[in-house]
C-alpha cells in the first residue's frame, strides 16, 4: 500500500473541523460554569473540541494514508433545484397555501432529473399536487389552507 492522498478524506475532515470550530466559538460565548454546575456552553464546547480533534485526525490521515473513496460526479442541477424546491416550500406554504406551493415544489423537483421532458414534469407535478391534497389536507385534515392569504382571496 503506497502512501496516497485522499481528497474525500481531507474534505470530510475539513467539514468536521469547520462545523466543530463554529460550535466551539459559539459555545465560548455562553457561560461555561463549573463541573458542579455546568453552564450551557460547557457541553457543546467539549463535544465541539472532540469534533475538531477527530476532524484534524481525518485530515492528517487523508494526507498520509487516505481511504480510497471514489468521489464521483456531482449532479449540480439536481442539488440546486432540490434545495430551491425545499426552501420554496418552507418559505411560501403559509402565504401561498397548500395547492400552489405543492405544485411549484413538485414541478421544480421533477426538473432535477436531466432527462425529464416538460410535459412529463407538468403531469407528474399535477398528479402529486392532487395526491398530496387528497392525502394530507382532505384525508389527514392538516390545518394548512389550500389557498393562502398572499393570493388575496
Amino acid at each position: 500500500m503506497e502512501r496516497r492522498r485522499s481528497f474525500p478524506d481531507v474534505l470530510a475532515g475539513g467539514v468536521f473541523v469547520l462545523i466543530g470550530g463554529a460550535f466551539v466559538v459559539g459555545a465560548l460565548g455562553y457561560e461555561l460554569g463549573t463541573p458542579l454546575r455546568m453552564g450551557p456552553g460547557a457541553f457543546p464546547a467539549l463535544v465541539g473540541a472532540a469534533v475538531i480533534t477527530l476532524g484534524l485526525a481525518i485530515v492528517i490521515k487523508g494526507f498520509i494514508a487516505g481511504e480510497v473513496v471514489s468521489f464521483g460526479p456531482i449532479p449540480w442541477r439536481a442539488v440546486a433545484v432540490i434545495v430551491l424546491a425545499v426552501l420554496f416550500f418552507g418559505f411560501t406554504v403559509e402565504g401561498l397555501g397548500f395547492v400552489p406551493t405543492s405544485a411549484v415544489t413538485a414541478l421544480l423537483t421533477t426538473l432535477a432529473s436531466s432527462r425529464v421532458r416538460l410535459l412529463t414534469a407538468v403531469a407528474v407535478a399535477a398528479g402529486l399536487t392532487v395526491a398530496g391534497t387528497l392525502i394530507f389536507v382532505i384525508g389527514l385534515q392538516l390545518r394548512i389552507p389550500l389557498w393562502g392569504p398572499w393570493l388575496g382571496f
Binding site: 424546491a85 425545499v86 416550500f89 405543492s102 432529473s113 407528474v124 402529486l128
Partner: peptide
C-alpha cells in the same frame, strides 16, 4: 422520475405539519 419528486414533496409536507 415520478418517485423522487413524490419523496421530496411528501417529506416537505410531512415535516412542515409536525410543528408548522
Amino acid at each position: 422520475q415520478v418517485l423522487f419528486p413524490m419523496i421530496i414533496l411528501f417529506a416537505a409536507i410531512g415535516t412542515y405539519s409536525l410543528e408548522f
